[in-house]
Amino acid sequence: MRVLYFAWIRERIGLSQEEVSSDAATVADLVAELRAREERYDLAFSDMASVRVAVDQELAGLDAPLDGVREVAFFPPMTGG
């Protein structure tokens, strides 16, 4: 699946998007896999209270299932307007 990062999460990880092969069942599982990869991921996801998630471009929770999902995005709380 494609994984996207925005704002300070993008900056901490140093990537705006990447292809990730994962068997993670939920968003939370994917986060755990990413955190185990490298310190920059671990840092970016160290405070999940300030991370929001979209699954296939819809806002979702950490418990959202990833079966059949093509795109997951991680970003801080939005500041539009």
């Binding site: 925005f6 704002a7 979209a54 806002l59 970003f75 801080p76 709380p77 939005m78 500041t79 539009g80 307007g81």
Partner: peptide, 9 residues
Amino acid sequence: LKSRAPFWK
């Protein structure tokens, strides 16, 4: 828009 539109400043 303030908190549900995917923009970051």
